[in-house]
Design a binder for these strands. Structure first.
Lengths: 153, 153
DNA sequence: CAAATTTATATCGTTCACGATGCAAAAGTA
DNA sequence: TACTTTTGCATCGTGAACGATATAAATTTG
Protein backbone atom coordinates (compact mmCIF):
# COMPACT_ATOMS: atom_id res chain seq x y z
CA UNK A 1 0.00 0.00 0.00
CA UNK A 2 2.42 2.61 -1.20
CA UNK A 3 -0.05 5.46 -1.10
CA UNK A 4 -1.97 4.38 1.99
CA UNK A 5 -1.08 7.53 3.93
CA UNK A 6 -2.34 9.72 1.10
CA UNK A 7 -5.90 8.93 2.07
CA UNK A 8 -8.21 11.48 3.59
CA UNK A 9 -9.29 8.97 6.18
CA UNK A 10 -5.85 8.88 7.69
CA UNK A 11 -5.31 12.58 8.06
CA UNK A 12 -5.60 14.64 11.19
CA UNK A 13 -5.30 18.00 9.47
CA UNK A 14 -8.26 17.34 7.22
CA UNK A 15 -10.34 16.64 10.30
CA UNK A 16 -9.18 19.80 12.04
CA UNK A 17 -9.93 21.80 8.92
CA UNK A 18 -13.40 20.28 8.57
CA UNK A 19 -14.28 20.40 12.24
CA UNK A 20 -13.27 24.04 12.40
CA UNK A 21 -15.39 24.97 9.38
CA UNK A 22 -18.45 23.12 10.58
CA UNK A 23 -18.12 24.43 14.12
CA UNK A 24 -17.93 27.97 12.78
CA UNK A 25 -21.09 27.14 10.88
CA UNK A 26 -22.77 26.20 14.15
CA UNK A 27 -22.27 29.81 15.30
CA UNK A 28 -24.31 31.18 12.42
CA UNK A 29 -27.72 30.99 14.10
CA UNK A 30 -26.36 33.01 17.01
CA UNK A 31 -24.14 35.50 15.19
CA UNK A 32 -26.37 36.30 12.22
CA UNK A 33 -28.96 38.06 14.42
CA UNK A 34 -26.15 40.21 15.80
CA UNK A 35 -24.92 40.98 12.30
CA UNK A 36 -21.38 39.76 12.93
CA UNK A 37 -19.17 36.97 11.61
CA UNK A 38 -17.18 34.47 13.62
CA UNK A 39 -13.84 36.26 13.22
CA UNK A 40 -15.54 39.50 14.21
CA UNK A 41 -16.92 37.76 17.27
CA UNK A 42 -13.38 36.71 18.15
CA UNK A 43 -12.20 40.32 17.89
CA UNK A 44 -15.05 41.43 20.11
CA UNK A 45 -14.15 38.82 22.73
CA UNK A 46 -10.59 40.12 22.75
CA UNK A 47 -11.83 43.68 23.24
CA UNK A 48 -14.47 42.77 25.81
CA UNK A 49 -11.72 41.28 27.91
CA UNK A 50 -9.62 44.41 27.52
CA UNK A 51 -10.67 47.51 25.63
CA UNK A 52 -8.35 49.83 23.72
CA UNK A 53 -5.71 47.63 22.18
CA UNK A 54 -3.41 48.19 19.22
CA UNK A 55 -3.98 46.12 16.10
CA UNK A 56 -0.89 44.08 16.76
CA UNK A 57 -2.06 42.87 20.18
CA UNK A 58 -5.39 41.78 18.78
CA UNK A 59 -3.74 39.95 15.91
CA UNK A 60 -1.31 38.28 18.27
CA UNK A 61 -4.03 37.04 20.60
CA UNK A 62 -5.93 35.56 17.66
CA UNK A 63 -2.78 34.09 16.04
CA UNK A 64 -3.62 36.09 12.92
CA UNK A 65 -1.51 38.35 10.73
CA UNK A 66 -2.14 42.08 10.93
CA UNK A 67 -2.99 42.15 7.23
CA UNK A 68 -5.93 39.91 8.07
CA UNK A 69 -6.99 41.90 11.11
CA UNK A 70 -6.76 45.36 9.59
CA UNK A 71 -9.52 44.86 6.99
CA UNK A 72 -11.53 42.97 9.59
CA UNK A 73 -11.36 45.99 11.89
CA UNK A 74 -12.17 48.34 9.04
CA UNK A 75 -15.36 46.40 8.37
CA UNK A 76 -16.17 46.42 12.07
CA UNK A 77 -15.60 50.16 12.20
CA UNK A 78 -17.94 50.63 9.25
CA UNK A 79 -20.50 48.52 11.13
CA UNK A 80 -20.15 50.84 14.12
CA UNK A 81 -18.71 48.25 16.49
CA UNK A 82 -15.25 49.74 17.06
CA UNK A 83 -13.31 52.98 16.73
CA UNK A 84 -9.71 53.15 15.52
CA UNK A 85 -7.70 56.07 16.84
CA UNK A 86 -4.06 56.99 16.43
CA UNK A 87 -1.82 56.00 19.33
CA UNK A 88 -0.53 58.80 21.54
CA UNK A 89 2.97 57.71 22.53
CA UNK A 90 3.49 55.75 19.32
CA UNK A 91 1.65 57.37 16.46
CA UNK A 92 2.21 54.37 14.21
CA UNK A 93 -0.18 52.39 16.36
CA UNK A 94 -3.90 52.27 15.83
CA UNK A 95 -5.71 51.84 19.12
CA UNK A 96 -8.92 49.90 18.67
CA UNK A 97 -11.70 50.63 21.13
CA UNK A 98 -15.28 49.49 21.47
CA UNK A 99 -18.15 51.81 20.62
CA UNK A 100 -21.34 51.90 22.67
CA UNK A 101 -22.80 49.39 20.23
CA UNK A 102 -19.77 47.15 20.59
CA UNK A 103 -19.96 47.26 24.37
CA UNK A 104 -23.65 46.54 24.43
CA UNK A 105 -23.30 43.55 22.16
CA UNK A 106 -21.55 41.74 24.99
CA UNK A 107 -24.83 41.45 26.79
CA UNK A 108 -26.51 39.92 23.76
CA UNK A 109 -23.61 37.52 23.20
CA UNK A 110 -23.39 36.47 26.81
CA UNK A 111 -25.15 33.16 26.32
CA UNK A 112 -23.56 32.10 23.05
CA UNK A 113 -20.77 29.98 24.55
CA UNK A 114 -23.26 28.11 26.67
CA UNK A 115 -25.62 27.57 23.72
CA UNK A 116 -22.80 26.22 21.62
CA UNK A 117 -21.54 23.87 24.25
CA UNK A 118 -25.08 22.62 24.79
CA UNK A 119 -25.41 21.99 21.09
CA UNK A 120 -22.18 20.06 20.96
CA UNK A 121 -23.28 17.97 23.90
CA UNK A 122 -26.59 17.31 22.25
CA UNK A 123 -24.99 16.43 18.94
CA UNK A 124 -22.26 14.21 20.26
CA UNK A 125 -23.82 13.09 23.55
CA UNK A 126 -20.44 13.66 25.11
CA UNK A 127 -18.65 16.73 26.33
CA UNK A 128 -15.78 15.32 28.27
CA UNK A 129 -13.81 14.08 25.31
CA UNK A 130 -13.84 17.55 23.74
CA UNK A 131 -12.69 19.19 26.94
CA UNK A 132 -9.92 16.64 26.93
CA UNK A 133 -8.80 17.80 23.47
CA UNK A 134 -8.10 21.32 24.67
CA UNK A 135 -4.61 20.79 26.11
CA UNK A 136 -3.59 18.81 23.03
CA UNK A 137 -4.80 21.53 20.71
CA UNK A 138 -3.01 24.14 22.79
CA UNK A 139 0.20 22.20 22.59
CA UNK A 140 -0.20 21.88 18.83
CA UNK A 141 -1.00 25.57 18.38
CA UNK A 142 1.89 26.78 20.50
CA UNK A 143 4.32 24.42 18.79
CA UNK A 144 3.23 25.29 15.27
CA UNK A 145 3.21 29.00 16.06
CA UNK A 146 6.75 28.91 17.36
CA UNK A 147 7.91 26.81 14.42
CA UNK A 148 6.31 29.10 11.86
CA UNK A 149 7.62 32.34 13.33
CA UNK A 150 11.09 30.82 13.33
CA UNK A 151 10.70 29.81 9.69
CA UNK A 152 10.23 33.42 8.68
CA UNK A 153 14.01 34.06 8.90
CA UNK B 1 -17.95 36.36 36.65
CA UNK B 2 -20.90 36.96 34.38
CA UNK B 3 -18.85 36.99 31.22
CA UNK B 4 -16.39 34.28 32.14
CA UNK B 5 -17.40 32.01 29.29
CA UNK B 6 -16.90 34.82 26.78
CA UNK B 7 -13.16 34.42 27.10
CA UNK B 8 -11.05 33.06 24.30
CA UNK B 9 -9.23 30.83 26.74
CA UNK B 10 -12.37 28.88 27.41
CA UNK B 11 -13.37 28.15 23.87
CA UNK B 12 -12.92 24.95 21.95
CA UNK B 13 -13.93 26.36 18.59
CA UNK B 14 -11.28 29.04 18.68
CA UNK B 15 -8.70 26.33 19.22
CA UNK B 16 -10.00 24.24 16.35
CA UNK B 17 -10.02 27.28 14.11
CA UNK B 18 -6.48 28.23 15.06
CA UNK B 19 -5.09 24.70 14.99
CA UNK B 20 -6.57 24.15 11.54
CA UNK B 21 -5.08 27.37 10.16
CA UNK B 22 -1.64 26.75 11.59
CA UNK B 23 -1.62 23.12 10.52
CA UNK B 24 -2.51 24.16 7.00
CA UNK B 25 0.39 26.57 7.24
CA UNK B 26 2.67 23.65 8.06
CA UNK B 27 1.87 22.17 4.65
CA UNK B 28 3.22 25.21 2.83
CA UNK B 29 6.85 24.06 2.61
CA UNK B 30 5.67 20.84 0.96
CA UNK B 31 2.87 22.14 -1.26
CA UNK B 32 4.51 25.33 -2.54
CA UNK B 33 7.12 23.40 -4.55
CA UNK B 34 4.29 21.46 -6.18
CA UNK B 35 2.46 24.71 -6.94
CA UNK B 36 -0.74 23.66 -5.18
CA UNK B 37 -2.73 24.86 -2.16
CA UNK B 38 -4.00 22.77 0.71
CA UNK B 39 -7.61 22.54 -0.58
CA UNK B 40 -6.24 21.58 -3.99
CA UNK B 41 -4.16 18.89 -2.30
CA UNK B 42 -7.36 17.60 -0.70
CA UNK B 43 -9.06 17.41 -4.09
CA UNK B 44 -6.08 15.54 -5.51
CA UNK B 45 -6.22 13.03 -2.65
CA UNK B 46 -9.87 12.40 -3.40
CA UNK B 47 -9.09 11.83 -7.07
CA UNK B 48 -5.98 9.75 -6.41
CA UNK B 49 -8.15 7.40 -4.42
CA UNK B 50 -10.70 7.25 -7.22
CA UNK B 51 -10.38 9.03 -10.54
CA UNK B 52 -13.28 10.39 -12.59
CA UNK B 53 -15.79 11.72 -10.11
CA UNK B 54 -18.57 14.27 -10.50
CA UNK B 55 -18.19 17.60 -8.70
CA UNK B 56 -20.83 16.66 -6.20
CA UNK B 57 -19.00 13.55 -4.98
CA UNK B 58 -15.79 15.48 -4.48
CA UNK B 59 -17.59 18.22 -2.60
CA UNK B 60 -19.37 15.68 -0.44
CA UNK B 61 -16.18 13.84 0.51
CA UNK B 62 -14.56 17.11 1.52
CA UNK B 63 -17.66 18.39 3.36
CA UNK B 64 -17.61 21.43 1.09
CA UNK B 65 -20.33 23.12 -0.96
CA UNK B 66 -20.20 22.73 -4.72
CA UNK B 67 -19.95 26.49 -5.13
CA UNK B 68 -16.63 26.25 -3.31
CA UNK B 69 -15.40 23.26 -5.25
CA UNK B 70 -16.35 24.46 -8.73
CA UNK B 71 -13.97 27.45 -8.79
CA UNK B 72 -11.34 25.33 -7.09
CA UNK B 73 -11.58 22.79 -9.91
CA UNK B 74 -11.56 25.53 -12.51
CA UNK B 75 -8.27 26.79 -11.12
CA UNK B 76 -6.91 23.27 -11.05
CA UNK B 77 -7.96 22.77 -14.64
CA UNK B 78 -6.19 25.97 -15.63
CA UNK B 79 -3.12 24.65 -13.82
CA UNK B 80 -3.31 21.47 -15.88
CA UNK B 81 -4.01 19.13 -12.97
CA UNK B 82 -7.51 17.96 -13.90
CA UNK B 83 -9.91 17.77 -16.84
CA UNK B 84 -13.64 18.44 -16.54
CA UNK B 85 -15.83 16.65 -19.05
CA UNK B 86 -19.60 16.48 -19.42
CA UNK B 87 -21.22 13.38 -17.94
CA UNK B 88 -22.54 10.80 -20.38
CA UNK B 89 -25.66 9.40 -18.72
CA UNK B 90 -26.39 12.64 -16.90
CA UNK B 91 -25.25 15.63 -18.91
CA UNK B 92 -25.69 17.97 -15.99
CA UNK B 93 -22.76 16.33 -14.29
CA UNK B 94 -19.18 17.38 -14.75
CA UNK B 95 -16.84 14.43 -14.43
CA UNK B 96 -13.49 15.47 -13.03
CA UNK B 97 -10.51 13.37 -14.02
CA UNK B 98 -6.79 13.63 -13.43
CA UNK B 99 -4.42 14.69 -16.18
CA UNK B 100 -1.00 13.12 -16.63
CA UNK B 101 0.41 15.94 -14.50
CA UNK B 102 -2.20 15.31 -11.83
CA UNK B 103 -1.45 11.60 -11.75
CA UNK B 104 2.28 12.12 -11.61
CA UNK B 105 1.99 14.54 -8.71
CA UNK B 106 0.97 11.64 -6.51
CA UNK B 107 4.50 10.34 -6.63
CA UNK B 108 5.89 13.71 -5.53
CA UNK B 109 3.30 14.01 -2.77
CA UNK B 110 3.79 10.49 -1.49
CA UNK B 111 5.90 11.47 1.49
CA UNK B 112 3.99 14.54 2.59
CA UNK B 113 1.78 12.81 5.19
CA UNK B 114 4.82 11.20 6.77
CA UNK B 115 6.74 14.50 6.79
CA UNK B 116 3.85 16.28 8.43
CA UNK B 117 3.35 13.66 11.09
CA UNK B 118 7.07 13.72 11.81
CA UNK B 119 6.93 17.46 12.21
CA UNK B 120 4.02 17.25 14.60
CA UNK B 121 5.82 14.65 16.64
CA UNK B 122 8.92 16.80 16.72
CA UNK B 123 6.95 19.90 17.66
CA UNK B 124 4.80 18.37 20.34
CA UNK B 125 6.95 15.40 21.36
CA UNK B 126 3.81 13.34 21.38
CA UNK B 127 1.83 11.68 18.67
CA UNK B 128 -0.50 9.46 20.61
CA UNK B 129 -2.71 12.19 21.96
CA UNK B 130 -3.37 13.49 18.46
CA UNK B 131 -4.25 10.07 17.16
CA UNK B 132 -6.62 9.87 20.10
CA UNK B 133 -8.37 13.04 18.94
CA UNK B 134 -9.39 11.50 15.62
CA UNK B 135 -12.52 9.64 16.74
CA UNK B 136 -13.70 12.67 18.71
CA UNK B 137 -13.24 14.94 15.72
CA UNK B 138 -15.05 12.45 13.51
CA UNK B 139 -17.97 12.34 15.90
CA UNK B 140 -18.08 16.12 15.96
CA UNK B 141 -17.88 16.42 12.18
CA UNK B 142 -20.57 13.83 11.53
CA UNK B 143 -22.87 15.34 14.13
CA UNK B 144 -22.45 18.90 12.94
CA UNK B 145 -22.85 17.88 9.32
CA UNK B 146 -26.10 16.10 10.02
CA UNK B 147 -27.37 18.98 12.10
CA UNK B 148 -26.53 21.56 9.47
CA UNK B 149 -28.04 19.70 6.55
CA UNK B 150 -31.22 19.31 8.57
CA UNK B 151 -31.27 23.02 9.33
CA UNK B 152 -31.46 23.84 5.65
CA UNK B 153 -35.25 23.11 5.62
C1' DC C 1 22.84 63.96 14.75
C1' DA C 2 22.33 61.52 10.17
C1' DA C 3 21.74 57.03 8.07
C1' DA C 4 20.22 52.38 8.33
C1' DT C 5 17.08 49.26 10.36
C1' DT C 6 13.05 47.83 12.57
C1' DT C 7 8.27 48.22 13.70
C1' DA C 8 3.10 49.09 13.13
C1' DT C 9 -0.10 49.27 10.04
C1' DA C 10 -2.08 49.40 5.42
C1' DT C 11 -2.73 47.98 0.51
C1' DC C 12 -2.87 44.63 -3.19
C1' DG C 13 -3.57 40.24 -5.42
C1' DT C 14 -4.96 35.43 -5.08
C1' DT C 15 -7.44 31.70 -3.09
C1' DC C 16 -10.89 29.91 -0.21
C1' DA C 17 -15.71 29.45 1.85
C1' DC C 18 -20.37 30.10 1.44
C1' DG C 19 -25.19 32.23 1.03
C1' DA C 20 -28.11 33.63 -2.67
C1' DT C 21 -29.41 33.13 -7.18
C1' DG C 22 -29.61 31.32 -11.95
C1' DC C 23 -30.14 27.73 -15.39
C1' DA C 24 -30.55 23.65 -17.82
C1' DA C 25 -31.24 18.77 -17.50
C1' DA C 26 -33.42 15.05 -15.15
C1' DA C 27 -37.08 13.07 -12.41
C1' DG C 28 -41.54 12.99 -10.60
C1' DT C 29 -46.52 14.03 -11.17
C1' DA C 30 -51.07 15.23 -12.97
C1' DT D 1 -47.46 14.30 -22.63
C1' DA D 2 -47.36 18.82 -20.30
C1' DC D 3 -46.18 20.73 -15.83
C1' DT D 4 -43.83 21.00 -11.55
C1' DT D 5 -40.06 19.90 -8.72
C1' DT D 6 -35.58 18.47 -7.92
C1' DT D 7 -30.84 18.07 -8.99
C1' DG D 8 -26.05 19.35 -10.61
C1' DC D 9 -23.39 22.82 -11.51
C1' DA D 10 -22.14 27.69 -12.25
C1' DT D 11 -22.07 32.70 -11.15
C1' DC D 12 -22.03 36.60 -8.07
C1' DG D 13 -21.06 39.13 -3.94
C1' DT D 14 -18.96 39.35 0.63
C1' DG D 15 -15.75 38.22 4.06
C1' DA D 16 -11.88 36.11 5.50
C1' DA D 17 -6.62 34.52 5.30
C1' DC D 18 -2.16 35.49 3.91
C1' DG D 19 2.21 36.46 1.04
C1' DA D 20 4.32 40.40 -0.93
C1' DT D 21 4.92 45.03 -0.85
C1' DA D 22 4.51 49.92 0.70
C1' DT D 23 4.85 53.71 4.01
C1' DA D 24 5.58 56.34 7.82
C1' DA D 25 7.17 56.53 12.42
C1' DA D 26 10.17 54.86 15.89
C1' DT D 27 14.62 52.85 17.10
C1' DT D 28 19.25 51.62 16.54
C1' DT D 29 23.72 52.49 14.82
C1' DG D 30 27.77 54.75 13.04
Amino acid sequence: MEYEQLKLDNQLCFRLYTAARLTMGAYHPYLDPLGITYPQYLVLMVLWEQDKQPVNDIAHKLFLETNTVTPLLQRMEKAGLVKRTKGKEDTRQRIVSLTKKGIEMREQAKHIPECLSNEIIQITREEEEFVRMIPSLDKLIQGLKKQQTNQKH
